[in-house]
Design a protein around this nucleic acid. Structure first.
Length: 741
DNA sequence: CTTTGCATTATTTTT
DNA sequence: TAATGCAAAG
């Protein structure tokens, strides 16, 4: 079988597996995608399955597309009928066809994280809970993890009936669910959860898909959560007892535990799928021996693993350089210099290099450094195209024409652009809708009952007629045309045209980009109606949207985003205890083993050269923090690391600096020649030592007052002032517009 | 109704 | 530092 010829023995064993469950443990760089694609090609080529009988599930759209493309190259068969996609997109596909069976309309919309937060916020307000104690983000993650445990709101309330706080959280959860149902909307977790409920409850639907998908393949199995695992099981275990589930994963790369991924899914696979075969891929085709030894050395400190050791034929390699930096600016500057050096001395190109970090916030300093040094870069994540206001607004129009029950979209655009529908009007509509248990959009058909002023009524009914017109158009126009029509008819275009600022112009550009994305979607897919477009956009991940047009750039991204990618030269930055491994505010949320796996992922991205940096002092949340170097660093075997003398290194840096002294940014000066060249900081308006309790002060807008007290909490000082007319106020001394009189 | 400006607050990773 | 929230002014 020449399809399998190019594989090594282990890979071939996996790809040509016949029937029954199989787990492939595929270490980093061991040819995982190769095995998956060859297996699918093999199944079809040997007539074990027809293309439409294969279901391949990946974690990102990017991985799915890559897989499709590579299978296409292996086979002459058309592959369009193969189901290759993410858990989410596959579930949407099943739900669009069948969701009516479980009481939703097939035109459901998908709420993203942002929408979800707005709903939760509304719920908290509506239940009259203290918004300070009931934090949207933490409630959101509770709801999400409860859903992933298949725990309903009622279950949660019952479980915690005697705990005041949690019971209230349960109430929020319950109301949240109700609101989503009313809006005919599903969140990300629902997409999978509802699919399972559908399959469990509806025997014929279940059997249809079980029969159809003779072979199921799951990529990145270590990142599945309980609900995803159940889906694999329910589709995989056929009534006749057959179970052709092929899962590929690496427990050492399980880095989504915080999102509900359960590493036990992979660790216990053989228990859950009886008689499962296990194949381990350990031969690495990516990195040098030095890099692999470092990775192996680090990861062997974990207990939660089956254990494996990556090896390669590529002996030796450059030693890893671990560099100590003064601060994050120094780090950025050094990385920039090293990138230059790689280009100069090793004939590297920018696109061969990546700079990784633990948190997105770290990217800014790095970016600044790269900009100053004139190094082209691109960032994965961060500013997300589809989360920009103008895009979300247009999306909201589209979603509302598609599903009028979508209250979040309704709120979003009812007065954007301005049509004189203010908060008061919206409140009245909301109140009415809640009372009647109908959507806000539908409430607008009963204006008499709401009791709006005449002018408000007029504005609202104009809005509704406009939407009605669009609702008709959406069915007769291609998506891209429809979007550009929406853009005009709603007045959004003229609103942006009037805005002559840089921002306004960039928003117009973004809309243009959105239109061409729609056009591209239209051409690329056969199912290219509005509903398909909406699902498509809702399920895009950052990594999918990476701007590939910008080539020959250094890539900046989080370690999470880097999973599955590889670069000749990799910089892993911010190796400080508290940052990597990260330490959270909330207790018991830390998972050192997962952080270690993350570090392992970071190391194994590098093919040839690996740099690791840490800073003694890092500006975080606006103030300086001193951190120790990461505990993970000493887990790297010493023989893998180049002994870099920090002083010698600093000297080299200064030498490099001299050449560029003219364009050298002030921050670098201040870092290297501490004190001497230090740029004076802007002085605060009032020095704290100049003001004491009892002083009389004049405030810009509040007039005269008397200082009652000065509170000093270390780095910022607060003055308490009793004003003659305004009463007692707390002011931040650094910013307060006050003068001593 | 909208805008502004000040004040407070919260900062991990994302399908 | 930056993002958001809130209250007062326009």
């Amino acid at each position: 079988m020449d399809l399998l010829q190019s594989l090594n023995e282990k890979q071939r064993e996996a790809a040509s597996h016949d029937k029954g469950p199989i787990l492939v443990i595929a270490g980093a760089g061991t040819g995982k995608t190769r095995v998956l694609t060859h297996r699918i090609a093999y199944l079809i080529d040997t007539n074990r399955a027809m293309p439409w009988e294969v279901l391949a599930i990946t974690f990102t759209n990017k991985a799915a597309n890559e897989m499709k493309e590579r299978i296409g190259q292996l086979l002459d068969y058309p592959i369009d009928r193969m189901w290759i996609g993410t858990f989410h997109s596959i579930c949407v596909r099943i739900l669009r066809k069948n969701i009516e069976r479980i009481g939703y309309d097939s035109n459901f919309v998908i709420y993203d994280t942002n929408d979800t937060k707005i709903v939760i916020k509304d719920c908290i307000k509506e239940l009259n809970l203290d918004t300070k104690k009931y934090n949207v983000n933490s409630i959101k993650s509770i709801i999400s993890s409860e859903k992933n445990r298949r725990n309903s709101a009622d279950d949660y309330i019952k479980e915690h009936f005697n705990e005041f706080y949690k019971r209230n959280v349960g109430e929020v959860y319950a109301l949240y669910e109700k609101k989503l149902k009313i809006a005919n909307a599903l969140d990300f977790d629902d997409l999978i959860l509802k699919t399972i409920i559908l399959l469990e409850n509806e025997q014929d639907v279940r059997e249809y898909y079980q029969e159809r998908f003779k072979y199921i393949l799951v990529d990145e199995y270590q990142d599945t959560n309980l609900v995803q695992y159940s889906l694999v099981k329910i589709l995989g275990k056929k009534p006749d007892g057959e179970n052709n589930v092929f899962v590929v994963g690496d427990e050492d790369q399980s880095i989504y535990g915080w999102r509900g991924a359960d590493i036990n899914n992979i660790l216990n696979f053989e228990k859950d799928f009886e008689g499962a075969k296990v194949v381990k891929l350990e031969k690495n085709y990516r990195s040098t021996n030095v890099i692999l030894n470092a990775a192996n050395g680090v990861i062997q400190n974990n207990c939660q693993r089956k254990g494996k050791n990556l090896y390669t034929d590529f002996e030796g390699g450059n030693l890893i350089r671990v560099l100590e930096m003064d601060n994050e600016k120094d780090e950025a500057f050094t990385v920039s210099c090293l990138i230059r050096k790689e280009i100069r001395e090793n004939n590297a190109s920018y696109s061969d290099m990546a700079v990784l970090y633990r948190t997105n916030a770290q990217s800014r300093a790095l970016e600044e450094g790269l900009i100053r040094e004139g190094i082209p870069y691109r960032i994965v994540g961060g500013l997300k195209f589809y989360e920009r206001k103008e895009i979300k607004d247009i999306m909201a129009y589209l979603m509302l024409t598609f599903n009028q029950k979508d209250n979040i979209s309704f709120d979003r655009i009812i007065n954007v652009p301005r049509r004189k529908i203010g908060q008061k009007t919206i409140d009245l509509i909301t109140e009415y809708a809640d009372r009647k248990g109908i959507s806000k959009f539908d409430s607008c058909y009963e204006l008499d009952g709401i009791g709006l002023t005449n002018s408000a009524s007029k504005s609202v009914s104009d809005f509704i007629s406009m939407m009605e017109m669009l609702m008709i158009k959406k069915d007769v126009m291609p998506v891209s045309e429809f979007i550009s029509d929406v853009f005009e008819v709603t007045g959004y275009k003229s609103m942006l045209l009037e805005d002559e600022t840089v921002e306004g112009r960039s928003r117009l550009e973004n809309i243009d980009e959105f239109l061409s994305a729609a056009k591209d979607f239209e051409e690329r897919y056969e199912d290219n109606g509005l509903e398909d477009f909406l699902s498509h956009v809702s399920l895009l991940a950052d990594i999918d949207k990476t701007d590939e047009t910008k080539n020959n750039c250094v890539t900046l991204m989080t370690v999470h985003s880097a999973k599955g990618l590889e670069y000749d030269t990799v910089f892993v930055t911010g190796l400080e205890d508290g940052i990597f491994p990260i330490i959270h505010q909330e207790p018991d949320s830390d998972d050192e083993e997962e952080e270690r796996r993350l570090f392992y992922v970071a190391i194994t991205r590098a093919k040839r050269m690996l740099f690791i940096t840490y800073a003694n002092d890092r500006m975080r949340f606006g103030n300086h923090e001193t951190k120790l170097k990461s505990r993970f660093l000493k887990e790297i075997p010493a023989e893998c690391v180049e002994d870099t003398n920090p002083m010698a290194y600093a000297a080299k840096k200064i030498e490099g600096l001299d050449k560029n002294i003219k364009k050298m940014p002030s921050f670098v000066k201040s870092n290297f020649f501490k004190g001497s060249l230090d740029v004076e900081k802007e002085k605060p308006k009032l020095k704290s030592d100049k003001i004491v309790a009892g002083d009389k002060v004049m405030h810009k807008s509040w007039g005269v007052g008397t200082v009652v007290q000065i509170k000093d909490d270390g780095d910022s000082k607060t003055v308490v002032i009793a004003f003659e007319s305004k009463g007692i106020k707390n002011l931040n001394l650094e910013y307060a517009p006050i003068e001593k009189i």
